[in-house]
Design a protein around this nucleic acid. Sequence first.
DNA 1: TGTTACTTGTTATAACATAACATATGCACC
DNA 2: GGTGCATATGTTATGTTATAACAAGTAACA
Lengths: 167, 167
Amino acid sequence: MTASSPPTGPEPAFVPHDHHHCVESALAGAEDLVRAKGLRMTPVRRRALEILLERHGAMGAYDVLQRLAEDGFGHQPPVAYRALDFLVEHGLAHRIQRLNAFAACLHPGEDHHAAFLICRGCHTVAEVSADPLRGALDEGAAALGFSVERATIEAMGLCSACREAAA
Amino acid sequence: MTASSPPTGPEPAFVPHDHHHCVESALAGAEDLVRAKGLRMTPVRRRALEILLERHGAMGAYDVLQRLAEDGFGHQPPVAYRALDFLVEHGLAHRIQRLNAFAACLHPGEDHHAAFLICRGCHTVAEVSADPLRGALDEGAAALGFSVERATIEAMGLCSACREAAA
DNA sequence: TGTTACTTGTTATAACATAACATATGCACC
DNA sequence: GGTGCATATGTTATGTTATAACAAGTAACA
């Protein structure tokens, strides 16, 4: 909603940006992708994705569960895990191993390798492209005869705002 | 112990190698490092490290705990977690986020950035250098004003033996 | 309309991890 | 050698994350 927002694509989470736009575009992309794959975007799944999208951060499965329960869905862990697993499996969300948590994917369907920058100050999680890293990783692995299928790349550190606040 | 083993340094786990040599060198390196830092390599800690070193794989904290208990140490989770946390904190072991597990570091004290190749067939975990990747990661993060302190880089896939077995 | 595949919900339990506190040990210093 | 402090070990108890197994409901389609 700010004049400084660029017209297309989601901004990295640490940069001031039009968050409403992120959400809309990610949600629309997700709907398209699901339809294209012949999957079903059911109410729990859609709501789980919306919940993740509401913030640029990761949420634990039990936090998502609580929100879902408040909205009238089931109260038991599998309700959240199943919705989240669906989102992750189809590239609509990512799992952040480091935090035992989940974050919405900001550009679903674009078949990308993601890496994450996790700020230990404000707990914001930024999704960035890992494509440049994957080349080196695949190459190094191949030299040992290992074929990489999926990679987890997560960096812990401080965003500029938190670094300044700490100084 | 085999004639094909090179004279120095541990071999990547997927390559046939002198495992006894890995263990000896990692253990010796750990002892040196601990002494140099003025820390205490107590019996539980040493034993925990030995247990991890016995295999080129990752072990869950509860597996390590069971082994420790069999050796006369305490039976409660903190016994294992404390020893493992000590090892990780001082660079003698690594945590494998993906598996909620721990693996001994094969070259302690060398101040390195590690990445891991995890075979989903045989569950072997190979530690490789992430130094080349860290350059690109730090650079990409810096462009967003983010400073990386620690990075988790874990690749899931198949080692050559398991890939051949599957084919 | 019946069949099939899938989705949701439940109960119960498994697996992973830490808080808080008591006891014991190592070690520097007098 | 004793005293005092920091560190280490062990315990109980609990918190957090994740899955297995099964029953009931719903969509798609011949």
